[in-house]
Amino acid sequence: MEQATVKWFNAEKGFGFIERENGDDVFVHFSAIQGDGFKSLDEGQAVTFDVEEGQRGPQAANVQKA
């Protein structure tokens, strides 16, 4: 698992990007966020996640709020 920071997340559209420590951004979809209830992330929030290869490149999976 990697630890990184949420760059931005649009709760209405259900997706955003996580900024990795190496500077690369990773796409995150609300369905990858672990937990119950409304799944959203806040800008600047610390998260841990795995990286999977998606249809359009790397994307976050198993996202957990740190």
Rank of each mutant, 00 (worst) to 15 (best):
M1Q: 14
M1T: 13
M1Y: 11
Q3P: 08
A4F: 05
A4H: 05
A4I: 00
T5D: 05
T5S: 09
T5A: 07
T5V: 13
V6E: 02
V6D: 04
V6G: 03
K7R: 08
W8N: 03
W8V: 02
N10K: 05
N10I: 05
A11P: 13
A11D: 07
K13R: 11
G14S: 01
G14I: 01
G14Y: 02
F15D: 03
F15A: 02
G16Q: 01
F17G: 00
F17M: 06
F17V: 07
I18P: 00
E19T: 15
E19K: 15
E19N: 11
E19W: 13
E19H: 13
R20A: 05
E21L: 12
N22P: 09
G23H: 08
G23Q: 09
G23E: 08
G23P: 03
D24W: 08
D24M: 12
D24P: 15
V26W: 04
F27P: 02
F27R: 02
V28T: 03
H29P: 05
H29C: 08
H29L: 05
F30R: 06
F30G: 04
F30H: 09
S31V: 05
S31M: 07
A32F: 05
I33Q: 02
I33F: 04
Q34G: 08
Q34P: 05
Q34R: 10
G35V: 09
D36A: 11
D36I: 12
D36L: 11
G37L: 06
F38M: 08
K39Y: 05
K39P: 07
S40L: 08
S40P: 04
S40V: 11
S40W: 15
S40H: 10
S40Y: 14
D42W: 15
D42Q: 15
E43I: 15
E43G: 13
G44S: 05
Q45W: 10
Q45K: 02
A46F: 13
A46P: 11
V47D: 01
T48F: 14
T48Q: 08
T48N: 07
T48K: 09
F49E: 01
F49Y: 09
D50N: 15
V51T: 08
E52H: 11
E52K: 10
E53R: 09
G54L: 06
G54T: 13
Q55P: 15
Q55D: 12
Q55M: 14
R56H: 12
R56D: 06
R56K: 12
R56L: 10
G57F: 04
G57T: 03
G57Y: 04
P58Y: 09
P58D: 05
P58C: 08
P58H: 07
P58Q: 09
P58K: 10
P58G: 04
P58N: 07
Q59L: 05
Q59H: 09
Q59P: 07
Q59Y: 13
A60I: 01
A60F: 04
A60Y: 01
A60H: 00
N62G: 04
N62Q: 05
V63Q: 04
V63L: 04
Q64C: 10
K65L: 14
K65H: 10
A66N: 12
A66H: 13
A66G: 11
A66T: 13
